[in-house]
């Protein structure tokens, strides 16, 4: 039970992480708040959209790196997950661009 995992340096590390988690939680809440305000601002859509994508990517990676310990764990885990993520992103970007609006019978949205 109580083995090397409970050594003082390990505990110190855990406490350091604990503070990271709290800081991160505050940031995540703040970013979500910014997102909600953003969508009502009279700024060109392209800009808002870019910022929104960026912000959710930041939130996404913050959670996987800190909450999910990828920054502390073996690098292999990071690359395994990123492989799945990148493949999904590439495949479905390709799929979305294969569907063109001009080719669809428009009576469905009139």
């Amino acid at each position: 039970m109580s083995d090397a995992a409970h050594s003082p340096s390990f505990l110190q590390e855990e406490i350091r992480r604990y503070h990271h988690f709290i800081t991160l939680a505050l940031w995540l809440a703040a970013i979500t708040g910014v997102e909600i305000v953003l969508i009502f601002l009279p700024v060109p859509m392209a800009i808002i959209l870019t910022v929104l994508c960026l912000l959710s990517a930041i939130k996404f990676f913050a959670v996987i790196m800190w909450f999910m310990h990828l920054i502390y764990d073996h690098r292999l885990l990071f690359w395994l997950f990123v492989t799945g993520l990148a493949l999904a992103f590439a495949t479905f970007t390709a799929l979305l661009s294969l569907f063109a609006v001009e080719r669809v019978d428009t009576k469905w949205f009139s």
Partner: peptide
């Protein structure tokens, strides 16, 4: 008949 795209099945199946 409700706007669904049967071709989407083909895409998902072959992915």
């Amino acid at each position: 008949s409700a706007g669904g795209q049967p071709i989407l099945w083909q895409h998902l199946f072959w992915i």
